[in-house]
Amino acid sequence: MFILDQYQIHLQGAALFAPLTAQLSSRDVLAIQGPSGSGKSTLLADICGVLNPVFFSTGALTLNDRNLRDLSVDQRNVGILFQDDLLFPHLNVYDNLAFGLPSGLSRDVRDQRIHNALEEAGLTGFAPRDIATLSGGQRSRIALLRTLLSEPDLILLDEPFSKLDQQLRTQFRGWVFEHIAEQNIPSILVTHDPADIPEGSQRLTLNKEPANA
């Protein structure tokens, strides 16, 4: 359960947007829209714990009954996917995926999970491949797999489809939400394109707060 309650981000005493309230259970998708500079990316940064200290946020921000503000980035179990896949270029597919896995797994378990993940993504046999030899679509899929393998409690999607061409985009979009749903976790999607938003999503629009608020 992810909760935002009367949530706001402030910069130099002024709020970036009107207070937000939302509650996400597993499989829920929250779509956030808003013009450039309205604070969408800042919001995601705060949730994953890399908020620039010049900002500060108020209101409840909890994930599975834990106050996220008490936790450092790596303790939050919040995964993020950007429009760039940000796969580590010095590691092969296997090592990229293994990076997300919890530590302390036996080699067999690790191999098995990665094998399964690749198989589901239709990328069987890709484990030893160099990242640079993959197509854009393949890379995007690996990036999502990497995030999912880290078993996050919440996943953030920062315009993850905007760099893909139209045909690939529709395909990949369906695939992403399918996989997130399988993990039984909520997700937050930031996007410019209404077509990216799956049906049944909650929606929030960030609006500049009136000056007198």
Binding site: C48, V73, D74, G79, F88, G100, P102, R146, T147
Partner: peptide, 16 residues
């Protein structure tokens, strides 16, 4: 260097 690589690594549960 694109610092987002470091962020991604951290969201994948690794310490700084």
């Amino acid at each position: 260097f694109d610092e987002r690589y470091a962020w991604v690594a951290r969201t994948l549960s690794s310490g700084p």
